[in-house]
Amino acid sequence: MKFWRARRAGLLFMAIIVIVLPLFLQNSFHYDIAILIGLNAIVCVGLNLLIGYAGQISLGHAGFFALGAYFSAILTDSYEWPPLLALLTGAVAVGMLALIIARPILRLKGHYLAMGTLGMGIIISIVLNQEVDYTGGPDGMPVPSFTLLGWEPGGNFAWYWIVAVMLLVSVWLALNIIDSPVGRALRSLHGSELAAQTMGVDTLRYKAMIFVVSAVMASIAGSTFAHYAGFLTPVEGDFIRSIEFVTMVVLGGMASTFGAVIGAVILTLLPQLLAAFHDYEMMLHGAVLVGIMIFMRKGLVPSISSWFARRLK
């Protein structure tokens, strides 16, 4: 009961921040950063279900993000599909691809699973770079604006609200699943795969399902990004982007949905804040990450909330 209240309170708190935030955003650059944070956060919330709760790893999620983006780009630009239909088609296609890959790849454990997903991400990245006829190759390709029944989001203010609603829905879904029979089964296979099986949990099926869910969330975020940015290059599917997503999840705190959001906020914002330090930017960036990982090993949100819990006792 207590958990249910805490969950609703967290979501409400986040909704208030999202609603109040525009008062502090002064120009379209600020909005741009906020939108990118939101899109990264959606990917991280999904990835956290896989990494933080189910205890698996994926070093290839930028691949799913980029695939979703390119599905939207190609279907709307070359084939003139309605953007929403293209987005949904991309999500279904990426989901199916993830399902096909999931069964063999999720039999792997630990470093081997990391290598397997890494390879998958790199293959996607190579395809996007090489299929010049479809993707424009490394030069990238334009993406038509998003339209829905004649309405077109005009400028960053409208995009902000689209992404905000998507993020809140993602967080709501993630919080729901974690505190459900499905979520407990996922967490149990993280705790002990052997015992989970003995309790009747078909562990491989659950791993595959959550892999697909997180891939679909990345794909939808990718499609949204494509229309928002208006131009797409294969950089979005780079290995480095995959690492960034994982770092956001780990930094914010594994097995914490709000932690995944905070991780996305910090790692999207940090390079901008540190830009003032010019030459020392990367050094400070690294120092902050290393510092947090040394002093808050469980990640920001779990460490800080358990610190508060101890203080309140």
Binding site: V182, A185, R187, S188, G191
Partner: peptide, 29 residues
């Protein structure tokens, strides 16, 4: 073989896995 990432009560709740509605969509919503 305890699920030590969960509460004691949740450990026992996982035991009831086979007797629960474990479809994904109803749990998500």
């Amino acid at each position: 073989q305890i699920f030590d990432n969960m509460t004691a009560l949740e450990n026992v709740m996982v035991g009831q896995h086979l007797h629960m509605d474990t479809r994904f969509l109803p749990s998500f919503l």
